[in-house]
């Protein structure tokens, strides 16, 4: 692990606390934007559940809820390890923070791997999204559910990949010392983003798998 590097305060801020608060406010504004982004998907889900309720119940039976459950558990653990890494960096023990970060990274990777298994299982039954849908099913509008399912979980998975890239970038910064107890803003911000991605999955799991 390299030495912690001193950081010069940008000229337009007059103290570190102001800079941290401004960064956090900016991050929360970005979180508000993400909430609205996913709200569009939840409204689409709600609208089409209203249009054909029985089909949604029938279709959610086709999904394997055990995999979804394990995924939820993994994401919650990854949220916990992310928070612990923020906690440790605030106490300046960088090794523990790095360990937690790597744990978060691998949990996210496992989540994606499980996701690919689920997708493969769907494809085997022919439940491709939209146009290429050739699956059997008791309802003729089944393709809408799987179109929505792939769109929502696909966009969520995309956010997880972006999260993993950010965590990797954080691991590098913890390693080369540009992040420490004085300046841990990036860690806190990526933590906020990661918790948001976890919260979206917390809502997705019951809506898609259990109802």
């Amino acid at each position: 692990m390299q030495q912690i590097q001193k950081r010069k305060l940008p000229h337009y801020f007059n103290n570190a606390h102001q800079e941290f608060e401004a960064a956090k406010l900016g991050m929360w504004a970005f979180m508000a934007q993400e909430i609205l982004f996913f709200s569009g998907l939840f409204v689409a889900y709600g609208v089409f559940r209203y249009f054909n309720p029985e089909m949604f119940i029938y279709a959610s039976r086709l999904l394997d809820w055990k995999l979804g459950f394990i995924n939820t558990i993994f994401l919650i653990i990854s949220s916990f390890t992310m928070v612990m890494s923020v906690y440790h960096i605030q106490h300046n023990n960088r090794t523990k923070s790095l360990v937690n970060l790597t744990a978060t990274f691998f949990l996210a990777a496992v989540f994606l791997i499980i996701k690919t298994f689920e997708y493969k299982a769907k494809f085997d039954h022919g439940y491709y999204p939209g146009m290429l849908f050739s699956g059997e099913g008791a309802f003729s509008s089944l393709h809408i559910f799987f179109g929505l399912y792939f769109t929502i979980t696909g966009l969520h998975a995309l956010h997880i990949i972006v999260g993993m890239v950010l965590i990797a970038w954080l691991m590098v910064r913890v390693w080369n010392g540009t992040v420490s107890a004085e300046y841990f803003t990036p860690v806190e911000m990526v933590g906020l983003y990661w918790h948001f991605v976890d919260v979206v999955w917390i809502f997705l799991f019951p809506l898609l798998y259990l109802l």
Partner: peptide
């Protein structure tokens, strides 16, 4: 998750964004 992991429990200024976004979503629905 929001209150403890994300520290909203000790926030004041940023709460308007969380509730603003949720309000906009509810309106949309």
């Amino acid at each position: 998750v929001g209150a403890f992991f994300m520290g909203l429990r000790w926030e004041r200024a940023n709460l308007i964004f969380v509730f603003g976004a949720i309000a906009a979503m509810v309106l949309f629905f």
